[in-house]
Simulated scan of single mutants.
Amino acid sequence: MIKLIASDLDETLLSTDRTVSLKNREYIQKARDKGVKFVCATGRGYSSIQTTLEEIGSKDMEGEYTISYNGGVITENKDNRLIHFEGLDFDTAEKLFFNGLKYDVCIHVYTLETVWIYNIFDGEIDYLNGRMAFTAFDDKNLDFLKGQEIIKVLYVNTDRAYLNQIEQDMVHMTEDLDVSYSSNRYLEFNKKGVNKGAAMHILGNLLGIRKEEMAAVGDNYNDLSMIRAAGLGAGVANTVETMKPECDVILETTNDEDAIADLIRQYVL
């Protein structure tokens, strides 16, 4: 019996208009009525998804949880209470930033309170509009962030092959990092061992929920750790093709076709 569903947001739970469909909301509530925890698991920060949490009825709710920053943070939704945190040390974050300066990329640096973005471009502004707030900066170093908790760094380019080449160039410096891709535009770096799957198990242990009682659903490589770690690992129909063989099931519906409702109807209810 499934007791916890961990769901990615962008291109999975959220429709292209960045909202949760009425049918998805209905079935999430049906699952919740049966005692199933529905956990948003996102690469974004928890503060940026409050509208989504409100849409699904779990904003500021005690006993409801969120996995954010690709697993770097777990919060209870009530007062966004921090349960678990694992970030990058400053030296590692700074090395990633300096390395990014060599490439044609936009660079995000995530702290608990702010997403700092270097070299932002119009296409990225359009993509982030309605998803999360950010602060652009043009410093050539991260000295202004010394003493702050840094959770992850990512590079942005809409050419996936270009990002793949960057990852290959960086093999010498990523041994102690978790590297993943998302939204077909992001190359992401977290602390080694920090990913959505690890966070899902930390939360499961806190709630007394076993792997076999977990389902996870996503569409891209930053979701793969939780898809592999769950008793049922599902991909939406729009999952990147090369990742589909890694999933236990591929849904017949996309994020614009109520895929989460489809998952809950078939495998939870």
Score class of each variant (00 low, 15 high):
137 F>I: 03
104 D>V: 02
128 L>F: 15
129 N>Q: 11
137 F>W: 06
147 G>E: 02
143 D>L: 08
100 G>W: 13
113 E>G: 09
145 L>I: 01
116 W>C: 02
142 L>M: 11
152 K>T: 00
134 F>H: 15
126 D>G: 02
111 T>Q: 09
151 I>N: 13
139 D>Y: 07
103 Y>T: 00
124 E>L: 15
115 V>F: 07
149 E>G: 00
121 F>K: 14
129 N>T: 11
108 H>N: 11
158 T>Q: 13
132 M>L: 10
100 G>N: 06
104 D>W: 05
111 T>C: 07
135 T>M: 12
154 L>M: 10
106 C>E: 14
150 I>A: 05
99 N>L: 05
110 Y>P: 03
106 C>V: 05
126 D>L: 04
132 M>R: 15
101 L>R: 09
99 N>A: 12
109 V>C: 11
117 I>T: 13
118 Y>W: 12
122 D>M: 06
133 A>D: 14
149 E>S: 10
130 G>W: 13
118 Y>S: 08
158 T>F: 15
106 C>M: 13
134 F>N: 08
123 G>K: 15
153 V>Y: 07
112 L>Y: 10
103 Y>I: 01
149 E>M: 07
145 L>M: 03
124 E>W: 10
144 F>C: 04
126 D>R: 14
147 G>V: 00
138 D>K: 06
105 V>H: 07
146 K>I: 06
137 F>L: 04
120 I>W: 14
140 K>F: 03
142 L>Y: 06
